[in-house]
Simulated assay, not measured.
Amino acid sequence: MTTILFAAGSKRWAEYETPLRRALDALGLDYTLSPETDDPAQVDYIIYAPNPSLHDFTPLTNAKAVLSLWAGVERIVGNETLTMPLARMVNDGMTEGMVEWVVANVLRHHLGLDRYVLNPTREWAPRVPPLARDRKVAVLGLGALGQACAKGLAGMNFDVTGWSRSRKDIAGITCLSGDDGLAQTLARAEILVLLLPLTADTENLLNAKRLAQMPAGAVVINPGRGPLIDDDALLAALDSGHIAHATLDVFRKEPLPADHPYWAHPKVTVTPHIASDFRTDSAAQVIAENIRRGEAGEPLLHLVDRGAGY
Rank of each mutant, 00 (worst) to 15 (best):
G146Y: 02
H110P: 01
P215V: 04
A144W: 13
L20N: 01
Y16L: 11
S276F: 08
L301M: 15
I221F: 12
Y16N: 07
A189I: 10
H110K: 01
Y116M: 10
G307E: 15
L196P: 15
R115L: 05
D231E: 15
K253H: 10
T161Y: 10
T58W: 07
L192P: 00
N222I: 12
M98V: 02
V286F: 02
H273R: 07
L27Y: 08
W101C: 07
P257G: 11
N207E: 12
L29W: 02
I291G: 05
M1L: 11
A296E: 04
L228Y: 05
V304F: 10
I243R: 12
Q42Y: 02
L301V: 00
E190V: 09
V286L: 08
A71T: 14
L69D: 05
N79H: 11
A189H: 09
L24G: 01
N157I: 00
A65D: 03
V77F: 12
N222E: 04
I47F: 08
W13E: 06
P85W: 12
E96K: 15
T32L: 03
G307D: 13
R122K: 13
G141I: 03
P120C: 11
D30V: 06
G143Q: 09
G141H: 04
R135W: 06
F6Y: 13
A216L: 01
P257S: 14
L300N: 10
W263A: 15
S166N: 13
D38C: 00
T81Y: 06
I291S: 08
A233W: 03
K11M: 02
Y262A: 14
D92Q: 14
L82T: 08
P272E: 08
A71V: 09
T202Q: 03
L182S: 10
K253Y: 01
V250A: 10
A125D: 15
N119F: 07
I287H: 11
A148S: 13
L192M: 06
G241T: 01
Q213C: 03
R210P: 07
P120W: 01
R279C: 00
T271A: 09
T199N: 07
F251N: 13
G217R: 01
D305E: 06
R188G: 01
L234G: 01
A154W: 00
A216R: 15
T199Y: 08
D44W: 14
A14S: 14
D44N: 13
L69C: 08
D30M: 05
I76M: 14
K151T: 13
T95E: 04
L192A: 12
E254Q: 13
P50I: 07
Q184K: 13
N290H: 08
A150R: 04
A171T: 15
N105G: 05
A138R: 04
G297P: 05
R293Q: 07
K168P: 13
N207D: 15
A246T: 15
K253E: 11
H55R: 15
S34Y: 04
Y116I: 06
T32V: 12
L248Q: 06
